[in-house]
């Protein structure tokens, strides 16, 4: 059994991230302190909120995206959205990209971090190599992977053929393409999760492990009872980052499949681009953007409420 004192310490530090600090005990001088977020608010109001509100306005029109002038069409674009099977597909894809790469990156990232946490020769080099792709623009990384995966003259098919297999059109089925997009995004950004977990692991004082070992704990139970709880802040950071990255996935899809076959591997972002520029339906594209933003806002609200509840219970 692990000593209950350690247990408490573990729990306390894990909760630290979520601890509300705005008790009535220490209120900084009211009003004045809020001034500090004005620069940020000003920027966001100008370069995010204003264009977004503008987009809401456009979503009620039939604008083609470049001509001067357009007509109001009321809620037509939103009605169309509800009955658009393609939009449903791309919405589901977006979730698959976000959740799929988030889960994979946590598993792989934590695995790599654990493997690289212990001292070994070449550790720094291995870390650098695994982190390397994070430093490259996704549009470039995606293009290189496209070259690797293409049917004729692709590096992967060269290997397959050399081993006596048959050339494969890797990016020609929907399921295969979605999986490859998730995999490429994961491989590129797994270094990020790895570094975050490495940092988390190194912040765990070794005395906890030593004390637990004295109590006879080992291997799996050490991992479960000390490592995992103490990594909570790292989990939070890494998961949030990966979710954002996955939801916004754009460049990789563009260069790997262009959204095909058909529309079947588009994300909401790439589909907005196609609707805007190719189909010349800017009004409809704006409605998609608004809908996506609304859904994400609601998800954030629910998540936040859940976290608040936790805080109250703690």
């Amino acid at each position: 059994m692990v000593d209950s004192g350690i247990d408490t310490a573990v729990r306390r530090s894990a909760d630290a991230t979520y601890r509300p600090t705005a008790g009535p005990r220490h209120r900084p001088r009211q009003g004045l302190v809020n001034v500090l977020y004005l620069p940020a608010l000003a920027l966001l109001a100008m370069f995010t909120a204003y264009p977004l509100v503008n987009g809401v306005g456009l979503s009620f029109t039939d604008w083609d995206g470049y001509s001067p002038g357009h007509h109001l069409v009321g809620l037509e674009n939103y009605q169309r959205l509800l009955s658009d099977g393609t939009f449903r597909t791309v919405f589901v894809n977006t979730l698959v990209y976000a959740l799929g790469s988030t889960v994979l990156q946590q598993v792989l990232g934590l695995g790599l971090a654990l493997a690289l946490d212990r001292p070994m020769r070449g550790r720094a080099l291995l870390r650098a190599i695994i982190y390397l792709p994070v430093l490259v623009s996704p549009v470039i990384m995606g293009t290189i992977y496209y070259l690797l995966l293409q049917y004729d003259n692709g590096a992967l098919n060269d290997i397959v053929v050399a081993l006596g297999g048959e050339q494969q059109a890797w990016l020609s089925t929907t399921t295969g393409s979605v999986a490859i997009i998730v995999a490429v995004n994961t491989i590129q950004f797994v270094g990020l999760s790895m570094i975050i977990y490495l940092a988390g692991l190194q912040s765990i004082p070794t005395m906890y492990y030593e004390a637990a070992r004295l109590d006879g704990a080992s291997g799996w139970s050490l991992f479960r009872r000390i490592t995992v709880p103490l990594l909570q802040p790292a989990f939070a950071t890494s998961i949030v980052l990966n979710l954002i990255g996955g939801m916004k996935l754009f460049d990789v899809i563009k260069v790997l499949t262009g959204g095909g076959p058909g529309y079947s591997t588009n994300s909401v972002s790439t589909f907005i681009g196609l609707t805007y520029f190719n189909a010349q339906s800017a009004g409809y594209a704006a409605a998609m953007g608004v809908a996506l933003f609304a859904v994400i806002m609601i998800m954030t609200l629910v998540l936040n409420a859940a976290l608040n509840k936790r805080r109250l219970e703690a």
């Binding site: 049917y151 059109a169 393409s177 095909g260 076959p261």
Partner: peptide
């Protein structure tokens, strides 16, 4: 058509 039509 080529096998990799949709990704070519």
């Amino acid at each position: 058509f080529n096998k990799d039509y949709s990704s070519a």
